[in-house]
């Protein structure tokens, strides 16, 4: 009898050691504080104090710093909050925030597409055609591949040349599978690979302001793009 008791105790002791440590931070963390200059990046502190590097007072995080008027501030709805890495057709690695400053016209395509993408690309060119000559430089057109495994920077470069979209204001992007999936979800673009060479996808052209906030979306192929062009002209005024 005694031995079995000891065994039971021993068993539970082992359980105690092996059980999950999730009780550790049950207590509420309360307000978090952060250096206003972000000297240590996104590091946060549980107590008020001063930053060890710039000596400025730490600011509570829950009060959002109201800097909406600042044109360089990235707002809550900006796509520049995404930190995924992309490769351009020139084989440069960028983040979306590197496109900040100009209004963006974006579309998701894949270069082996035979059905809708040539028409989508034509729609993009049609939009570009309607922008006055002196405003042409103020815009950035971004074509993002939904097939990052096939559409390498070299392939995208070829596609750009074939379609006379090799100018400064055209950017082609290759992402990672999850980066593309995430970005498609930001644009509410749906797509599905139906065979190794083919995708189904929604045909959506999106317009962003220079802060990366969505201004307008045009859905469908060969639709009247008057509204889209209107929104773009509004942005480059």
């Amino acid at each position: 009898m005694k031995t079995s008791n000891y065994i039971a105790i021993l068993f539970v002791a082992i359980l105690a050691l092996a059980s999950c440590k999730e009780t550790k931070s049950e207590k509420d963390l309360g307000t978090l504080y952060q250096c206003p200059m972000k000297c240590e990046g996104e590091k946060t502190f549980d107590k008020p104090g001063s930053c060890s590097i710039c000596k400025m007072d730490l600011q509570p995080l829950s009060e959002p710093t109201a800097l909406l008027a600042d044109p360089f501030e990235i707002s809550d709805t900006s796509i520049f909050n995404l930190t995924t890495k992309w490769k351009t057709e020139e084989d440069q690695t960028i983040e979306l925030v590197d496109l900040k400053g100009k209004p963006l016209v974006m579309v998701m395509i894949y270069t082996t597409c035979k059905a809708a993408c040539p028409r989508l690309v034509a729609d993009m060119r049609n939009i570009a055609k309607q922008i006055p000559e002196n405003k042409k430089e103020d815009l950035q057109y971004v074509l993002i591949s939904i097939d990052p495994e096939t559409d390498t920077p070299e392939r995208l470069k070829e596609f750009a040349i074939e379609n006379q979209m090799d100018g400064e204001q055209w950017t082609f992007l290759q992402g990672t599978l999850s980066g593309v999936r995430e970005f498609a979800n930001v644009l509410a673009v749906k797509y599905k690979q139906i065979s190794p060479m083919d995708f189904s996808h929604s045909n959506i052209i999106s317009v962003f302001n220079p802060q990366g906030e969505l201004v307008h979306q045009q859905e469908g192929l060969g639709v009247d793009n008057k509204e889209t062009v209107g929104h773009i002209l509004e942005l480059v005024k």
Binding site: C117, I194, S200
Partner: peptide, 11 residues
Amino acid sequence: DSNLFCGSAAI
């Protein structure tokens, strides 16, 4: 609706 979705006939 092939204007909204490319290749929609396949699905």
